Simulated scan of single mutants.
Amino acid sequence: MGHSDSQLGPRVGNQTVTDTVTDTVWDDELVPDERGRTSAPEPDCPVEVTLTAISGRWTTLVLRELMGGPLSFGELRDRLPSLSAKVLTDRLRDLEARGLIARRTHPGFPVRTSYTLTDLGRVLRPLLIELYRTGNTLAALRRSLPR
């Protein structure tokens, strides 16, 4: 008797789906649709899309700093003093190319530039929060392991 035949109906609890072509059992919560049901990384898999968005050394820290609002290059350098100007420039260009931040030039002399998150960039806030929580939990569990 499958879930759809049960008295409780097809949407009770954590469901699994069997792909009849490959006989692979999929957890509906982990893989709710076809885009993630792959045997190799695919560019349209939502997990791969997310990992690509936050990939790169310093990327998550730059995004974190911009979560509070627009910042200039100098303000970002002040907040991340170990980050070289070259790497910061590379990260900002990359994040702008990904559509996660926008660069704005302000009139005047000298010309000032600020960086701000786009709507796409702001979508990453809950992910960054959860990554921090998960990392904190993993670190605590590692500390509790016998040595």
Rank of each mutant, 00 (worst) to 15 (best):
S6C: 03
Q7P: 09
G9W: 02
G9K: 00
G13L: 11
N14W: 12
V21H: 15
D27R: 09
L30C: 01
E34H: 11
E34Y: 13
R35W: 05
R37K: 12
T38N: 04
A40S: 11
V47Y: 11
V47D: 05
V47S: 14
E48G: 04
T50V: 14
T50G: 12
T52W: 14
T52H: 15
I54S: 12
S55L: 06
T59H: 05
T60M: 15
L63M: 00
R64A: 14
E65T: 12
L66W: 03
G68C: 10
G68L: 10
G68M: 06
G69V: 15
F73I: 01
G74L: 00
E75V: 01
L76Q: 06
R79D: 07
S82N: 06
L83N: 01
V87F: 03
V87G: 02
L88A: 00
R93C: 01
R93K: 04
L100P: 00
I101G: 04
I101T: 11
I101N: 03
A102H: 02
R103I: 03
R104F: 06
H106N: 05
H106E: 13
H106L: 15
G108P: 00
P110Y: 15
T113A: 12
T118K: 07
T118W: 09
L120K: 15
V123E: 13
P126V: 07
P126C: 06
L128S: 03
L128T: 09
E130S: 03
L131C: 13
Y132E: 08
G135K: 06
G135H: 11
T137A: 15
P146G: 04
R147V: 09
R147G: 14
R147F: 02
